[in-house]
Amino acid sequence: MIEYLLTAFFVAQPVAPAAASAVSGNAAQAPVPRLRDPVAISSKRLSGSRERAVFSGDVVVTQKALELRCDEMAASYTGPREVTRVECTGQVRMVEGPRTAQGERAVFDVPAGVLSLSGSPEASDPTTRLRGAEMRLKTGVPGFEYEVDEAVVTLEAAPLSLPRKSSGKDAPAARLPAEVSARKVVGSRSQSVFTGDVVVKHRTLELRCDKMVAYYTASQQVTRAECVGHVRATDADRSVKGERAEFRVPTGVLVVTGNPEARDATTRLRGSEVRMTVGNANFEVKDAVVTVESATPLPGREAGKGPPASTPSNPPSGGTRSP
């Protein structure tokens, strides 16, 4: 049986017309509906009715720069053949400029320009990679706008500010991505908001909190992140906790406030602000209260003999501690 390639052209649902402008006193010019770009759909087989068409076999949907491919698709449209909704199943692939997405199922809301993906969906652009249980992508916009449930997001971090070499030349910029997981993320051109069980992994740092906002440069690199709620961070054998934190990506400095506490193998620090630099063994603490653990007694020392073991100390508040 010979299969034919069918192509159907539909008109997308019209954009709401602008309000009529008044001319010649109270007279108003009748609004003229402005149609959106047409939707072209091609496939090997097609069956349809007045309100719905089913395409199967190498389905390709195009609208402006958007190209959507899948195994089978159902298109819903109004009486004037205005496409309002497209449902795709099986090996869904989307390409729009530098952005790509894939999954097993998709729903394209044509008037809103929103593509909803499920079935192990993934999406990416040159600086961001998205994974999750379900994602919604805004099409037809210059930036990467998205909303992801049970998200894992890999972001390109701004280059690290490394110290100069002994020769006086700048060290080469290191670009290390940051991976962030959360119950939900909503992203735009300038920032992404993560909520629910947020976990950030960057270099040797693991940072956890209830909510985080990541800020981007014009080139979509993360330069700064702000965390609130049950902030907890670890870097090697050091840890710090508090209620708020700011992570400055180029310098690797984490600033924790809100009753912050920091610990390493032998020391506990409290204060009004704690600074921890990724990969650096030191803490910086404002209004510091430091507790040093007792030294372990030497083997074989009898009770009551020899110099007394050291005891925890609490120096006066204020100052900086560098363990």
Rank of each mutant, 00 (worst) to 15 (best):
P323N: 07
A236K: 08
R301A: 10
A303Q: 05
V249D: 01
V292S: 02
L117C: 12
I41N: 04
E147A: 14
R45E: 06
A30F: 14
P98F: 12
A133V: 09
A53I: 02
L115P: 04
S42R: 15
R224L: 11
K165F: 05
T217Y: 07
Y146S: 08
Y215K: 04
Q191L: 12
L137W: 01
L35M: 08
S43L: 10
R238H: 13
A12R: 11
F55M: 00
K64V: 13
S76D: 13
V289M: 03
E226G: 00
L162G: 00
K138H: 15
A233R: 02
T277S: 04
T204C: 01
V15L: 13
A8T: 15
G258D: 01
S192A: 15
S294A: 10
D287I: 01
E261K: 05
A40H: 06
M94L: 15
M1V: 06
P172V: 07
R268W: 03
S167A: 12
E246I: 08
D235S: 06
A245Y: 06
S190Q: 14
R301H: 03
N26Y: 14
T62C: 06
S116H: 05
T195S: 13
P80H: 04
G187L: 12
A214P: 00
S190E: 15
R105Y: 08
S56R: 13
G57Q: 04
E145Q: 11
Q191T: 12
N314Y: 12
N280L: 01
A75W: 06
P315Q: 06
R203Y: 02
S219Y: 06
M94P: 03
I2R: 13
T234E: 05
T291S: 05
S181K: 14
S219R: 14
P80M: 04
S294D: 00
V199T: 09
V256W: 00
K305Y: 13
M1E: 13
A28C: 03
G318K: 08
A27V: 15
L298K: 07
E51C: 02
R93N: 07
L5R: 15
D264M: 03
F194K: 00
T217G: 10
P17E: 10
M94H: 07
G279D: 06
M212S: 09
R238N: 11
F108Q: 05
T223H: 15
R208T: 04
A106I: 09
G79W: 10
G168I: 07
S116A: 13
T7Y: 08
D149Y: 03
G25V: 08
A214Y: 00
V255W: 00
A262N: 01
M135A: 10
Y77I: 09
L176V: 12
D287E: 11
T234I: 11
R34V: 15
R36K: 13
L155H: 08
S21G: 07
R321H: 10
Y77F: 15
D149A: 09
V290E: 02
A265Y: 01
Y216F: 15
E87W: 04
A12N: 08
S166R: 14
K44E: 09
P80N: 03
N280C: 03
G271R: 01
P308L: 14
R164Q: 09
R238S: 10
A151L: 11
V32F: 06
